[in-house]
Amino acid sequence: GSSGLPPGWQSYLSPQGRRYYVNTTTNETTWERPSSS
C-alpha cells in the first residue's frame, strides 16, 4: 500500500487514539512520522 512511510515502518493507533510509528526491523517506536530520507 501507499502509506508514504519508509520501508520497515508501520503506523498504529494507541489506545488513546494517538498515531505512532513502529520500525518492524529495529522495534523502534516513535510519535514522530519517520522520514524516508
Rank of each mutant, 00 (worst) to 15 (best):
S3H: 14
Y21K: 00
P15F: 06
N23L: 03
T29N: 05
R33E: 07
S14R: 01
V22A: 04
R33A: 09
P15V: 06
T30K: 06
T29V: 15
V22R: 08
S37H: 12
G8Y: 07
E32K: 11
E28R: 05
Q16S: 15
Y21W: 11
G1W: 06
N23W: 04
P6T: 04
S3E: 15
Y20I: 06
E32F: 13
N23I: 01
S3Q: 14
P6R: 04
R19W: 15
T25N: 11
T26R: 03
P34T: 01
W9Q: 00
S35A: 12
S36Y: 14
S37E: 13
G4T: 11
S3K: 10
Y12W: 07
L13N: 04
S36V: 13
G4L: 10
W9R: 00
R19N: 05
N23A: 01
S37W: 13
E32I: 14
S37M: 12
Y20P: 00
G17D: 01
Y20Q: 01
T24M: 11
N27A: 09
G4Y: 10
E32S: 08
Y12G: 06
T29P: 03
S35G: 14
R19M: 13
T30I: 08
S35I: 13
T26G: 02
E32G: 04
L5S: 03
P7E: 11
R18A: 08
L13K: 05
S37Y: 11
V22N: 01
N27W: 12
P15H: 06
P34H: 01
L5A: 04
T25Y: 15
S11Y: 06
P6K: 03
L5K: 02
S2L: 11
T29L: 15
T26A: 03
T25Q: 13
R18G: 07
T30S: 11
S37F: 12
W9S: 00
L5H: 03
G17M: 03
G4M: 10
S14Q: 01
G4W: 12
G8W: 06
P34C: 01
Y21M: 00
P7H: 10
N27P: 03
T26H: 01
E32P: 01
E28C: 12
E32L: 11
S3P: 12
G8R: 03
S36L: 14
P34L: 02
Y12T: 04
T24N: 08
T24W: 09
R19G: 01
W31R: 04
V22I: 11
T26W: 02
P7S: 08
Y12E: 04
P7Q: 08
Y21P: 00
E28K: 06
R33P: 10
S11H: 04
P34I: 02
Y21A: 00
Q16K: 10
S36G: 13
T29R: 14
G1L: 13
S2M: 12
N27R: 10
S35V: 14
W31M: 06
Q10R: 15
S14F: 01
L13F: 08
T26L: 05
Q10G: 05
P34Q: 01
G1A: 13
G17F: 04
R33K: 11
G17R: 03
T30L: 08
E28D: 05
E28I: 07
L13E: 06
Y12S: 04
R18I: 15
G17W: 02
E32N: 08
G4R: 11
W9M: 01
N27V: 02
S3M: 14
S37K: 11
T29I: 15
N27F: 10
W31H: 06
S11W: 09
Y20W: 06
R33M: 09
Y21E: 00
N27I: 02
W9E: 00
P7A: 11
T24A: 10
S36F: 15
S2V: 14
S3F: 15
W31E: 05
S14W: 01
N27L: 12
Q10S: 09
E28S: 04
T25L: 15
Q16M: 10
Q10F: 14
S3I: 14
N27G: 15
T29H: 13
E28Y: 06
G1F: 09
P7I: 08
T29K: 13
R18V: 14
L13P: 02
R19S: 04
Q10P: 01
Y20N: 00
S36W: 15
S35M: 14
G8H: 07
R33D: 07
P34E: 01
Y12D: 03
L5V: 04
Q16F: 09
T30H: 05
P34D: 01
S14T: 15
L5E: 14
Q10K: 15
G4D: 14
T29F: 15
R19Y: 12
S11I: 09
S36I: 13
T30A: 06
S35R: 09
T24I: 13
N23V: 01
Y21R: 00
T24S: 10
L5T: 04
G1M: 11
S37R: 09
Y12I: 06
S14I: 01
L13S: 04
R18P: 02
Y12P: 00
V22M: 07
R18D: 10
P7R: 08
S37T: 12
R33N: 09
T24P: 08
P7V: 09
V22Y: 12
P15R: 08
T26V: 02
G8K: 04
S2A: 13
W9H: 00
Y20T: 02
E32R: 09
P7M: 08
G17N: 05
Y12A: 08
N27H: 13
W31D: 05
V22H: 08
G8S: 05
G17I: 00
E32T: 11
S11V: 12
T24Y: 08
R19E: 10
N23T: 00
E32W: 10
T30D: 01
V22S: 03
S35F: 11
E28P: 00
T30Y: 07
E28L: 06
P34A: 01
L5F: 03
P34G: 01
L5I: 05
Y21D: 00
Y21L: 00
R18W: 07
R19P: 12
S2W: 07
S3Y: 15
T24V: 11
W31Q: 04
L13V: 11
R18H: 09
T29G: 05
R19V: 15
S2H: 12
G8N: 08
R18K: 11
T26E: 02
R33G: 03
P6A: 05
P34N: 02
N23F: 06
Q16D: 15
W9L: 01
P15L: 07
S11N: 02
S36T: 12
E28M: 06
P6E: 04
S11A: 12
G8M: 05
N27D: 07
Y21Q: 00
G17K: 03
Q16E: 15
G17Y: 03
P6V: 04
E28Q: 07
T26F: 02
Y20L: 05
P15W: 05
G17L: 03
Q16W: 08
P6M: 05
P15I: 06
S2N: 13
S11K: 03
E32Y: 12
R18F: 09
R33Y: 12
P7N: 08
W31L: 06
S11M: 15
G4P: 14
T25E: 14
T26D: 02
E32H: 10
L5Y: 03
N27Q: 11
R33I: 09
W31K: 03
W31G: 03
G4F: 10
G17P: 00
N23M: 02
P15T: 07
P34Y: 02
G17T: 01
S37V: 14
T25M: 14
T26N: 05
S36P: 11
Y21V: 00
S14N: 12
Y12Q: 05
L13R: 06
P6H: 04
T29A: 10
T25F: 15
T25D: 11
S14A: 04
G4V: 10
G8P: 09
V22T: 05
